[in-house]
Write a protein that binds this DNA or RNA. Structure first.
Length: 524
RNA sequence: UCCCCGAUAGCUCAAUGGUAGAGCACCCGGCUGUUAACCGGGUUGUUGUAGGUUCGAGUCCUACUCGGGGAGCCA
């Protein structure tokens, strides 16, 4: 009904200009505070609505925010009121109304609607205001990111990406785009996606690093920023098969210099997010004080020290107290579930009350199953850390433990060279080690950065490649960098989604990217 | 590749081996300040697939498929 008379679609912006007298100022929800007292038009989608006979509450989102529009039924607008009251979720609409400051409203601003025009009636929008399962939500990802929480996360992501770019740009780095189709030369070849390239086998890039090393010899400080592909069959809350990574590479630079850059970058990301997204972070339930604590200097420990910590008493104490807490929580949840089920089944309980209890029971059951998984895992983690052997890489649970034992990010340096890539520079004082580092985010978020000083000595590098069984002929171009003015250099890679997860305080990495690609999930 | 958990209405979930249910969504009606609004009425099923046990299977057994979590590996 009520096709918009004054702002017809399609294309209300150019083809059907309204006569000057009828033009009402269009406003964005994000700017409504500046329009208090004025009557404006907003254009958006119906997020949710309620009505109570003579009043209709329309919660409208317009891409910049949401606002509640209150429409009062009068003799004159009965038809429009009936239409507005029945609008379905996610119908697109325009609302003319007066902007009002109102303490009852969520954002402090509300609109008294004067006219509501339907643009398109949505039918059977699948994502209701009630809870849904993850599988369903990701099958509807194209719609799900309209929802508030997802909307906020993707905004924070955009800001983090913007800050990454401006950090490197303002610090004199040159953007060098590295290829996505790559020949076999890379790190571990089992984790590469194969692509048929006109009959030849090439791979989707796993890192731009080798190319960047060449570029830093031309531009001194460079970075690349693009998607990265890993065919790892990992099903965990910190893995994607397609993710975004920023990699700086610096000529005339040693391990400490690289670590300092990583430290500065992470600090400016945290500050920028705190500055621009305090509201979103709070709404996401992020503990802001944890982000405010992301300040220089971060902790720096060596791999050997990390190994000692893992085998030591502090780790055991932490896991023991985890076990005590998880066990207590399990008992508590079981008790609450039993009580609520009993209460809901009792005589004379109001229907709505029983339903509310049932919903709470579902939540408790979900938490219970997580706690039970934790209880299962703690002994495993305990064993993994207690039996940690010098020489192996730090596992996911090991990293989590190290990170949880610190209140700021931790650089772990000087890993055994046997578990690290061939291009990392051998440590002069101890040839068993390489000049590398990982940055572990606190609160258990784990690795967000991996980096190293690169091996600049031709003979050492060639020897290392032979050990790894790499074909020298594939890397001649790379070895040229060590033939023509080789210098100490290094860099790192920061995983964007892991950073977003950490800064937003999210359970799972899959919410940090618009269309997550996971093992077994590539639709839509 | 290995280990654990799960799959019932469009969605979220119930159902001591014995007639498949509730809420939401959707439709109708009511309510002048709602915040996952509420109240009354209505519609909604090949219980993931294929076998097996049983008088009888959503429920027990086997295999497979898909999903979730974790290990390994990693940003």
């Amino acid at each position: 009904m009520d096709r918009p008379r004054r702002a017809p679609y399609p294309d209300p912006f150019t083809t059907h200009r309204k006569p000057e007298a009828e033009i009402m100022e269009r406003a964005l929800v994000a700017d409504l505070r500046k329009h208090v007292g004025q009557t404006v038009t907003i254009q958006g989608w119906l997020y949710n609505s309620r009505s109570s006979g003579k009043l209709a509450f329309l919660i409208v989102r317009d891409g910049t925010g949401t606002v509640q529009c209150v429409l009062e039924k009068t003799d004159a607008n009965a038809e429009m009121f009936a239409m507005a009251e029945k609008l379905s979720q996610e119908s697109s609409l325009e609302v003319d109304g007066e902007v009002r400051a109102d303490e009852r409203a969520e954002g402090g601003v509300e609109m008294t609607a004067k006219a509501v025009r339907l643009v398109h009636a949505s039918e059977g929008y699948p994502i209701t205001p009630k809870p849904h399962g993850v599988d369903f939500l990701f099958r509807n990802r194209h719609l799900w990111f309209r929802s508030k929480r997802q909307w906020m996360i993707l905004r924070v992501r955009a800001t983090i990406i913007d800050e990454i770019r401006s950090f490197f740009n303002r610090n004199g780095y040159i953007l060098i785009d590295t290829p996505i189709f790559a020949p076999s030369a890379g790190e571990g070849s089992q984790t590469l996606f194969k692509v048929d390239y006109f009959g030849e086998e090439v791979y989707l890039a796993q890192t731009g690093q080798l190319y960047l090393e060449s570029a830093c010899m031309a531009h001194r400080k460079v970075y690349c920023f693009g998607p990265t592909f890993r065919a790892e069959k990992s099903k965990t809350r910190r893995h994607l098969t397609e993710f975004w990574m920023v990699e700086p590479e610096i000529a005339y630079c040693q391990l400490d210099d690289v670590i300092n850059v990583a430290e500065d970058l992470v600090c400016s990301l945290a500050q920028r997010v705190l500055r621009d997204h305090r509201t979103e972070l709070e709404a996401l339930g992020r503990d802001i004080s944890k982000l405010e604590a992301i300040k220089k200097p971060f902790y720096r420990i060596t791999y050997s020290e990390a190994a000692e910590i893992l085998r030591g008493p502090r780790t055991r104490e932490l896991l023991d107290s985890d076990m005590v807490r998880a066990t207590a929580r399990k008992a508590e949840l079981e008790k609450m579930i039993a009580e609520k089920e009993k209460e809901a089944a009792g005589q004379g309980v109001k229907k709505w009350k029983a339903e509310k209890l049932a919903a709470e029971v579902i939540d408790h059951r979900e938490e219970l199953s997580e706690v039970e998984t934790e209880i299962d895992n703690i002994p495993k983690h305990k064993q993994l850390s207690a039996n940690f052997d010098w020489g192996g890489d730090l596992g996911g649970s090991d990293e989590t433990l190290i990170a949880r034992l610190h209140d700021r990010p931790v650089f772990v340096t000087h890993y055994p060279r046997d578990c690290k890539a061939f291009y990392m520079r051998r440590h002069d004082a101890d040839p068993r080690l390489v000049q590398n580092f990982d940055l572990l985010a606190p609160e258990g978020y784990g690795e967000v950065i991996g980096g190293s000083q690169r091996e600049e000595r031709l003979d050492v590098l060639v020897h290392r490649m032979q050990e790894e069984g790499l074909k020298q002929e594939d890397y001649e171009w790379y070895l040229d960098l060590r033939r023509y003015g080789s210098v100490p250099h290094g860099g790192f890679g920061l995983g964007v989604e892991r950073t977003v997860r950490w800064l937003c305080g999210l359970q799972h990495i899959r919410e940090t990217i618009p269309y997550p690609r996971l093992m077994g999930r590539f639709y839509p």
